[in-house]
Design a protein around this nucleic acid. Structure first.
Lengths: 164, 164
DNA sequence: CAAGATTGAGAGGTCAATCTTC
DNA sequence: GAAGATTGACCTCTCAATCTTG
């Protein structure tokens, strides 16, 4: 405490900045810890795997090139390769050749993967509601979306994230 | 697309729920990816290491028991052991015996660790501002904090998170 | 020779077993 | 015997090197 005061923080966040930022990080950490724990215990799927499946279901034909899938999940090329290996091994996804470019592989959701995702979504939505959404009025939900849209234009309405 | 309609989502989120939730996740993923990348490149520290240092600086005498540190960072006992091993190896932290309980070890920030943290905070705050805070008015920052406090009471004002 | 994807070797994380102290 | 912390063995991730096609 004494030492901390002797080496003061340069250009600190303002009071309201600090409180909003800290609450944002704390809420996210709390909610995702609960999400990952419940998805694992109830569906034997990690939050990361859930993210991959939910990304695919929202896309035409439920298939995406490996690189595009990695870009949308913000993960590396080698990590998406290994994650899809595992999901394919379990029968939730299937690779196929890309007719438009023979370097590229398409990663598709299978019928089994779709059923798995639908079941997992019940848990996902339950956690999202119980840890955040259910406490908020419709007006507060819209405020939240508006505030985020102000900070990162496109983040609310854009179908793909990050944008192409 | 055709198949997705045949296996519909049970109990979906409402429109405003969906938009607020998705934006929340997208903003967090975007900001933390940028944060981790810049902390690594400018200070050779991961976001996780930064989180450990920032947790310690906010606490009396800048020291915490290993288990309490793990609890506040939402990570396992073995992971905090190895993370502190590395931070100690680099001179940013130091372990000492806990006089109150000889089973327990205290993990303390060193003077070098405090200087490292102060430097990293400049980068941290720059990213936090540029990706989220700077676009918001003081009123919007307060709205954000209020909305989070509604969802998880204590998340804004509590000095320790998660609460004891 | 650049882009898309995968692989091998090494670094880092996880789970159960262990050691010490309460 | 349970709690606090660490260790060992296994598993996953990362980085650079590789293979293939544009």
């Amino acid at each position: 405490l004494r030492n901390a005061n002797k080496v003061p923080e340069p250009d600190p966040l303002s009071g309201p900045e600090f409180l909003a930022w800290r609450a944002f990080l704390r809420v996210h950490a709390t909610v995702t810890a609960e999400l990952d724990a419940r998805l694992r215990s109830e569906h034997d799927v990690t939050l990361e795997q859930y993210g991959i499946l939910i990304t695919l279901v929202g896309v035409p034909e439920m298939k995406l090139r490996m690189g595009e899938l990695a870009r949308r999940r913000l993960i590396s090329a080698s990590k998406i390769t290994r994650a899809v290996d595992e999901l394919e091994r379990r029968g939730y996804m299937q690779r196929s050749a890309d007719p438009a470019d023979r370097r590229s592989h398409l990663a598709a959701l299978t019928a089994k993967g779709l059923r798995k995702l639908r079941a997992a979504q019940v848990t996902h939505h339950d956690v999202a509601r119980r840890c955040l959404l259910a406490a908020l009025s419709e007006r507060q939900l819209q405020q939240l979306a508006r505030v985020f849209e102000t900070a990162l234009p496109g983040v609310v309405s854009s179908d793909v994230w990050p944008p192409p």
